[in-house]
Design a protein around this nucleic acid. Structure first.
Lengths: 254, 254
DNA sequence: CGAAGGCTTGATAGACCTCAAACACAGTGG
DNA sequence: CCACTGTGTTTGAGGTCTATCAAGCCTTCG
């Protein structure tokens, strides 16, 4: 149930049995959130953290005139609101797609675990740092790249993050976002996202239909998005790109 | 010497004498870095963290074609590379302005301090979280706001951050950035930054000459940048805006 | 079958970029 | 002390990427 998180924490060094146990027994309960419902609202002061077990969510912020900026995408193994542990929230979190399942862990219990297992505290601190690294890449993406490159970069990132927690298959991955939501994440209008996606399809980099992305040409997608995966801190041996070329191969090379 | 950092850490709760002592005795040495020199280079694996004691610096990343995105501005009391403590660097850090002075603290010593004073570890973790909150605001700024609003927002942020560590005076603060660097931080071209600054000056919101900004009309600057300071986590009583109106008043209201 | 949400398309406008050159200013060296 | 040089700022002109507005289409779902 919490294996995506444990897998993430073990990217740097294996956890002891006791530590794994502590993580696994941390959640108080599960919480199923319906489509587009708010998980956490802006400015809340929380007593619990929420960990995604299943589905998708996003951090976002509304602007005065109703526009929205999505600042992060969250998938299985990601904490929605770890920062709520040490300060009040400055963003909202909403479920994307049909629904999301969350594990709820009380701050109190989490702090108790840190006391017994300080290494876990450092593990989650590192998680906050990787979060920040992703923010930096998004800044570069939005600040300096064309719409075409932005979308390509985003897709590369999501591919790898999902792949690292075992949520990809044969070059496919789920992406339950509308084009408007993609626009809100990348600082683009819906119309322009639509046209740019058409371009990516026309050039056979991807397919994207009914919330499923298929990567047709990883190499060119990576190049188009100027994507360098190192910021995600996934060990190379855990990192699998989709098969190259238009037809994903089923076997290994002879 | 480290008072800006201590002040920052005490925003949430006072430190004990022992904790303050530990912080103050942490640095191994000071390091003076000349103008625009690299403090830390991308992809380094570090054994020390660098804390700004004096001057300015920025986190940045170079793109393939030579363009640059500045992802963070760093002032006294900010760590350049706290993330280097737990993972390899994914960005460079450079000094802005004439020079910057850094306090250098070894990872080893820092970890030792955390063992004796776990609350300091949480304090720095919170610092990482505030860093992330700033990234989120920058994303919103670059993703959704006009050039005019972006610059206004940036100036508001810097004003408050500098004010909180005692580096403002009578509506003035130092900002040793060229217009090209401002553009690199906000995802704008130099030319457009220039024209937009002229607009801000023409409308008497600010003055900006030889690396000094003067805030003439805080209210309108805040409004123009849709600035909401809460993300900086500065207690309201520590937060002082420049005097309203064109002439900063010297006294308090009678 | 109608409604609602999402996707697609066309036309137009505007914000911002790029290129290019002139200008201002500080530091350097003769 | 004054040209000289380099960096940073300013201005002009033109181009383009992306936003906005508006409508039509498609799919899903009750």
């Amino acid at each position: 149930m919490l294996s995506p998180l444990i897998r993430k924490l073990e990217r740097f060094s294996p956890l002891s049995e006791a530590e794994k146990q502590a993580v696994q027994s941390a959640p108080l309960r599960l919480w199923q959130v319906a489509s587009h419902q708010d998980i956490i609202s802006d400015r809340a002061r929380l007593a619990e953290v929420h960990l995604i077990v299943n589905g998708f969510a996003c951090r976002y912020k509304l602007l005065g005139d109703g526009r929205r900026q999505i600042t992060a995408l969250l998938i299985a193994g990601d904490f929605c609101d770890l920062s709520g542990l040490l300060m009040p929230m400055d963003f909202g979190v909403a479920a994307l797609g049909h629904s999301a399942t969350l594990a709820v862990i009380s701050h109190e219990r989490l702090m108790g675990i840190f006391e017994k297992h300080p290494r876990l505290a450092f593990g989650l601190w590192r998680d906050t740092m990787i979060d920040a690294a992703i923010y930096r890449q998004w800044l570069i993406n939005i600040g300096r790249r064309s719409a075409y490159a932005r979308i390509a970069h985003l897709l590369c990132e999501i591919w790898l993050r999902m792949q690292a927690v075992g949520l990809t298959r044969d070059g496919f991955f789920e992406l339950p976002m509308t084009q408007a939501e993609i626009g809100d994440a990348l600082g683009l209008s819906t119309v322009h996202v639509n046209r740019t996606l058409q371009q990516l399809r026309a050039e056979s980099l991807i397919e994207f239909k009914s919330n499923v992305v298929r990567v047709l040409d990883w190499q060119r997608l990576e190049t188009s998005g100027e994507f360098d995966p190192s910021y995600l801190q996934i060990a190379p041996e855990l990192m699998v790109s989709p098969a190259a070329g238009n037809a994903p191969r089923s076997g290994v090379r002879p």
